[in-house]
Design a protein around this nucleic acid. Structure first.
Length: 156
DNA sequence: GCCAACGTTGGC
DNA sequence: GCCAACGTTGGC
């Protein structure tokens, strides 16, 4: 298996949790992901030190807001066990957790937000499979290739 | 607020 | 295993 650093995009609604929130707390357990594909990327694909782009979704100007790093191996999302939590999953047990997460550590804010509208201008270079601009895709956690990472950062 | 696209659930 | 109904996402 390759030991090279991998790259990821993670979406968040800034009203709920923004890059400024991450800057304030430093490290955050990325809880609340309830999509199997996104879970699998966190559980099976991520490793400590991987690069993360934080994307602000469902807001006035959606786009990439900052950089972070994967700060822990995957472990069960505690909120699935909490009946009081919005993310409670009655089918999950401690013996058989259903949802996993990683800790995400703040790295830096981008000098400016890279708007989705601008990212779309590079759809050809980013490729059809790129989940951010793929038609109909709503994945909130997905891989970014080294080439995509470089291209996106060059827009900063 | 609208609505298209998608994922999940549950009856059959 | 099908698929309609439902809930959610997220751009606009």
């Amino acid at each position: 298996m390759s030991t090279r650093r991998r790259y990821w995009m993670m979406k968040s609604e800034p009203d709920a949790f923004s890059i400024d929130d991450l800057a304030r707390v430093g490290t955050e357990p990325w809880n609340g992901v309830r999509n199997y594909q996104a879970r699998n990327f966190m559980r099976d694909g991520m490793r400590v030190g991987d690069g993360v782009m934080l994307y602000h979704s469902n807001c006035t100007v959606p786009g990439i807001a900052g950089l972070a790093t994967v700060a822990s191996p995957a472990y069960p999302d505690e909120t699935q066990f909490d009946p009081e939590s919005h993310y409670h999953d009655p089918k999950a047990t401690r013996e058989q957790p259903r949802w996993f997460l990683v800790d995400v550590a703040f790295e830096r804010k981008l000098r400016r937000l890279i708007p989705l509208s601008e990212i779309r201008e590079h759809s050809d270079a980013l490729g059809e499979g790129f989940a951010l601009t793929a038609r109909g895709s709503r994945l909130s956690v997905f891989p970014v290739t080294a080439a995509q990472w470089k291209l996106l950062l060059s827009l900063e």
